[in-house]
């Protein structure tokens, strides 16, 4: 994604609705001049006016149209908590759009979208945007702790083949999204295609292991696996070099920045073992 049009914008909250107690869909007025984005693109938001917490908070764009930019905010600390309390019409400063590499638009090959928890945000954007563009051969696998965490309504009216996994079995498959993926793959219930994932690091790593572990006739079915990563960031622009992810290299793994080299990476290239931070 190009940096053209990237900037700091003063805008306002249009709507803040709790999907469930600790997770909010926040709709922000799209500022004049804010460029179009691709799924995987993100913005950073200043959650407070004072300096604790100090840094802007990065969020994947979950939806964007002429008037809105939507993000999914799960309360995990003081920054997200402050954001979750923002009211309609409250002013807010955003920096964006950010991200050097977003999800590639699907080719003719089917896409298997796999989301865990709030990882649904960029995946939902991809589903809605690409459905509108006529992409129909997509399958969603979406996991959460329980049915409460499965935010089906953020996909609006877009219908694609969807499979749900909940740890407590309250909706769909009992287990996590990766176990559901494996079971569907071995069942021949998934098309041969590319994987687009976003979720907790453990989920994405397990997904890589699962794909690698598919032997025999299943080998090579899922040629590409793109994943959108999350990290603590300071600048969001690639300047400060703070948000590193190690990629497999010949010797010691190479350090890339999640904000500007990603957030989307080829999952197979990530040095999961070496990523100890």
């Amino acid at each position: 994604m190009s940096s053209a049009g990237r900037g700091i914008f003063l805008t306002e909250i249009l709507d803040n609705r709790a999907l469930y107690p600790d997770t909010h869909v926040i709709s922000i007025k799209r500022p004049a001049g804010f460029p179009d984005t691709e799924p995987g693109g993100f913005i950073s938001i200043r959650a407070v006016e004072n300096t604790t917490p100090l840094l802007l908070r990065p969020f994947s764009i979950m939806w964007q149209d002429d008037e809105h930019i939507e993000i999914l905010v799960k309360v995990v600390g003081p920054g997200s908590e402050a954001l979750s309390k923002k009211r309609t019409k409250e002013p807010v400063k955003i920096l964006g759009p950010l991200g050097g590499r977003t999800f590639p638009a699907p080719s003719q090959r089917p896409v298997i979208l796999i989301a865990g928890g709030t990882g649904i945000a960029p995946i939902a954007y991809a589903i809605k945007k690409w459905s509108a563009a006529g992409v129909s051969n997509a399958v969603l696998i979406y996991g959460a702790a329980s049915s409460v965490g499965i935010a089906r309504d953020i996909l609006d009216e877009v219908v694609i083949e969807s499979h749900y996994a909940t740890l407590d079995g309250s909706l769909g498959f009992e287990g996590d999204a990766v176990e559901l993926f494996k079971s569907l793959a071995l069942d021949n219930s998934l098309p041969e295609g590319d994987i687009y994932s976003c979720g907790p690091r453990g989920m994405v790593r397990a997904l890589c292991d699962a794909v690698a572990g598919l032997g025999g006739m299943y080998k090579g079915r899922f040629a590409h696996h793109y994943t959108s990563l999350e990290a603590v960031m300071a600048c969001g622009l690639g300047a400060c070099r703070g948000c590193t992810v190690p990629l497999k290299g010949d010797g010691e793994s190479a350090l890339k920045t999640v904000c500007s080299d990603g957030p989307v990476f080829d999952a197979e290239e990530i040095d999961w073992e070496g990523w100890t931070w």
Partner: peptide, 22 residues
């Protein structure tokens, strides 16, 4: 190449960094 490991940590009104002159 700079330091491996975490490079950023917020503190009250502060920021710890360990970039390592990348």
């Amino acid at each position: 190449v700079g330091n491996r490991g975490a490079r950023l940590r917020e503190t009250p009104s502060g920021l710890l960094n360990s970039i390592g002159l990348e």
